[in-house]
């Protein structure tokens, strides 16, 4: 084959990129068209939800408790002598509910569930199981994608609520045992400037992140080509793309809600 020059490579990559955006858009359109039919086979969705929740919960809880702890340590350090410690709970609470809870949960789930979806669908693709579904007149979007998508947008907020709760407990624990702040002070601070909007903003993020993780997992799974190596590549791609998109959309949603 002829060696390609620099501009050809750039051109090709750019084309591939926009092609990818188009394909994801088509996938999303198909998901929304198929959505109303989900109740005909709702057991598939509940299965996915269970799997997603159960498989990620331990990991989410562990990351959250330490995240809460570190955010308390960090906030106390930044406050030093300038901000009274009664605002520590406020700082930890806001950081966790708005930002850390949703984002870290999403990143953990992307690594766990997103990768799993891409690997599973990728294997099904290369072993012709997706084709086999088609020949049984079963639409893969309806049977594979929609259940995962719904489970993503539903379970991520649920996991985020767990994460928020545990992270705040982590922050509280660190404050009480290491920083010498009473739990009364911490909790009062937490309540002080608590807005429902913060919680809702965080959960809206979680819904979007869940959609991103499931969509990327399914998209890269379906695009898999060429055996075990291909499955490995798609899995990596699914995780990388969801992580980047999570951080980008985090910024976008934050500027809409809190900007």
């Amino acid at each position: 084959m002829k060696k390609k020059n620099f501009f050809e490579i750039i051109g090709e990559k750019t084309l591939r990129f926009f092609e990818g955006i188009g394909e994801v858009a088509i996938l999303l359109k198909d998901i929304f068209i198929t959505l109303p039919k989900v109740f005909r086979n709702f057991h598939l969705t509940t299965q996915q939800m269970l799997f997603m929740g159960v498989s990620s919960l331990p990991l989410v809880l562990i990351t959250s408790i330490f995240t809460g702890g570190v955010s308390a340590v960090q906030a106390a350090y930044q406050f030093s002598d300038y901000v009274p410690m009664r605002y520590l709970g406020t700082a930890v609470g806001k950081a966790v509910v708005i930002e850390l809870g949703p984002v870290l949960t999403a990143l953990v789930v992307a690594g766990r569930v997103g990768a799993g979806i891409a690997a599973e669908l990728g294997t099904m693709k290369v072993t012709e199981q997706i084709d086999a579904l088609e020949t049984l007149a079963l639409n893969p979007i309806r049977f594979l994608v929609v259940p995962r998508f719904l489970s993503g947008i539903f379970m991520l907020p649920v996991l985020t609520i767990f994460s928020d709760f545990v992270a705040i407990l982590g922050g509280l624990g660190v404050s009480v045992f290491l920083l010498g702040i009473s739990s009364y002070t911490f909790l009062n601070g937490l309540k002080l400037f608590f807005h429902t909007r913060d919680l809702i903003g965080g959960l809206v993020k979680a819904v979007v992140f869940g959609g991103i993780i499931a969509t990327m997992g399914c998209y890269h799974g379906f695009k898999t080509q060429g055996g075990a190596e291909g499955v490995g590549k798609s899995t990596t791609r699914a995780v990388v793309f969801s992580s980047v998109l999570i951080l980008i959309s985090d910024y976008v949603i934050a500027s809409i809600f809190f900007g």
């Binding site: 099904m124 072993t127 007149a137």
Partner: peptide, 24 residues
């Protein structure tokens, strides 16, 4: 397309070369 194709496939059966069984 879509609906018509799925309707048609209900009248077909296919045995794949590699069997393509659902391994889950």
């Amino acid at each position: 397309k879509n609906k018509k194709l799925y309707k048609l496939r209900q009248r077909f059966g296919m045995l794949f070369q590699g069997s393509a069984l659902f391994d889950s």
